[in-house]
């Protein structure tokens, strides 16, 4: 009787382990396949019996991607746009985040409502009028225009994240400094900024990844081939794919994933808790 119970328990655990392995395969396989394709020589990619791992690994695909398909150019564009978006968003958001944290007002509700609204509304509603407005300002098909869009689009959520970090800094520190005769600027630079640094980094990385991964706005706003971002150029180079293009396409995709993967590796914990805050609050 007891043995039977134990056996059943073991069997159940064995079954669960198998199931978990199946999940691991499902999650990881496309990524393994992409990586392996990126290192395969052209001759191995179209084979009737493709091997899981490249038989003769090569860096040729990376060379082709960089030299012939302008991946380096669009990677540079994307990097520039993402870094500028992150920095500008922080600069613009910081004062308001401070205000939100230190002075409870209707602004807090407005920000929350706007986060919800901007999540619910399909981008198609906003993109055309935005396109026309930016056109009037001469910002269509420029990086400045796209940066502007990204800053505005990440602002609500960034405000929300940042004000949480500001709230974590005790007001008493500021009061004490004020009593000691520090000017508001001194307080900001000497006290708040250093304590806020981890929060600023987290928020900045969030904006960076958003901009790096974004596709829809970039697709509509940028027309010149030498201005496009990685996502757009990779999506375009999909259109002319023959088997010969798979290798370089995979190599380009790997290059495009690296920064976000790095950010995820660094921020794993924080991201998870951020999502939790969002998910559980609903």
């Amino acid at each position: 009787m007891r043995l039977g119970h134990r056996l059943r328990h073991r069997l159940a655990r064995f079954g669960m382990s198998l199931l978990l392995l199946a999940f691991i395969a499902f999650l990881a396989f496309p990524i393994v396949w992409l990586t392996s394709t990126a290192f395969k020589p052209a001759g191995e990619i179209g084979l009737q019996n493709p091997a899981l791992l490249p038989r003769q690994p090569t860096l040729d695909n990376f060379r082709v991607a960089v030299e012939e398909n302008g991946v380096l150019r669009s990677a540079y564009n994307t990097l520039k746009i993402s870094v500028l978006s992150a920095v500008l968003t922080l600069l613009v958001a910081l004062p308001a985040a401070y205000l939100l944290a230190r002075r409870r007002s209707r602004m807090n509700q407005a920000v929350t409502v706007w986060i919800l609204v901007s999540q619910t509304f399909p981008l198609i509603l906003i993109i055309v009028p935005l396109f026309l407005i930016l056109g009037r300002l001469g910002l269509v098909n420029t990086h400045a225009g796209l940066v502007l869009v990204y800053v505005v689009w990440s602002l609500p959520f960034v405000l929300w994240m940042l004000q949480g970090y500001v709230r974590g800094i005790p007001v008493q520190l500021e009061e004490a400094a004020a009593v000691d005769g520090a000017s508001p600027l001194d307080i900001l630079v000497r006290i708040i900024l250093p304590l806020l640094l981890p929060g600023l980094i987290a928020t900045g990385l969030y904006t960076f990844v958003n901009a790096w991964n974004e596709f829809f706005f970039a697709l509509v706003m940028l027309k010149s081939p030498d201005l496009v971002t990685l996502q757009v150029s990779l999506a375009r180079f999909r259109g002319i794919e023959g088997l010969a293009r798979w290798g370089p396409l995979a190599a380009g995709s790997l290059i495009a994933i690296i920064p976000t993967l790095l950010v995820f590796a660094v921020m794993q914990r924080r991201l998870v808790s951020g999502v939790l805050a969002g998910g559980v609050k609903e």
Partner: peptide, 14 residues
Amino acid sequence: LIPWAIPPVIKGLM
């Protein structure tokens, strides 16, 4: 966590 970090375009290509 990894699929999460991958942009939609690359997911599609993959």
